[in-house]
Amino acid sequence: MSAAKPSSPSVSARMSRQARRDTAPEVAVRKLLHAAGYRFRVNTRVPDMPRRTIDIAFTRAKVAVMIDGCFWHGCPEHATQPKANAQWWREKLDRNMARDRETTEHLAAAGWTVLRFWEHEAPEGVAGLIAFTVKQELRESARPRP
């Protein structure tokens, strides 16, 4: 890991102001889910993983929803590579993607269904897939076990 820092104090200040929660894509999806009668937790801590959260959590169904920003999480369609301080940024963004994989694997191992979406995906489609998955998981958990 490089000891380099963001290329300037203004870049550092801009990065620190980036929304970590309640982004426009998250709020749009949450509004649709709530209007459809779904209740969920927002920015819930990932069990046994400090400083990591689930954007939208359906705890009874054990469905974790993450809505990832294209730049910060490496969207294959929209991610950009900054030219200034390129090595520092590459390492930072690679660490973000590795952390995403680790979080997904941790939750899956704990019995959660993890759904990841990109910020550019249509909220209606995202909410529909989430609703379908939550219903399916609740049906599965209600079945008697042999």
Rank of each mutant, 00 (worst) to 15 (best):
Q87F: 12
P50A: 13
H34R: 12
D94P: 02
G125Y: 03
Q81L: 11
P50D: 13
R116T: 03
V46N: 06
A98H: 10
H73F: 14
V126N: 00
R95S: 14
F40G: 01
G125H: 15
C75H: 06
V126R: 01
H120A: 06
V114G: 01
T103S: 09
P47S: 10
A61Q: 04
A35R: 14
G111Q: 08
I56Q: 00
M49T: 07
I54A: 01
D48L: 10
L129N: 11
T133S: 06
R41Y: 12
R101Y: 06
A109D: 10
L115I: 10
E124S: 12
K62R: 15
E91V: 09
C75V: 12
E77G: 06
P82C: 12
M49H: 06
R101F: 05
I67L: 11
G37C: 09
A36D: 09
L107Q: 01
W112S: 00
F132L: 14
I130H: 00
P47H: 13
R52G: 03
K92L: 11
E121Y: 03
A110R: 14
V46R: 03
P76L: 09
G74T: 10
A98E: 15
C75A: 11
G128P: 02
D55G: 05
H78L: 12
A79S: 12
F71D: 06
A109E: 10
T53H: 11
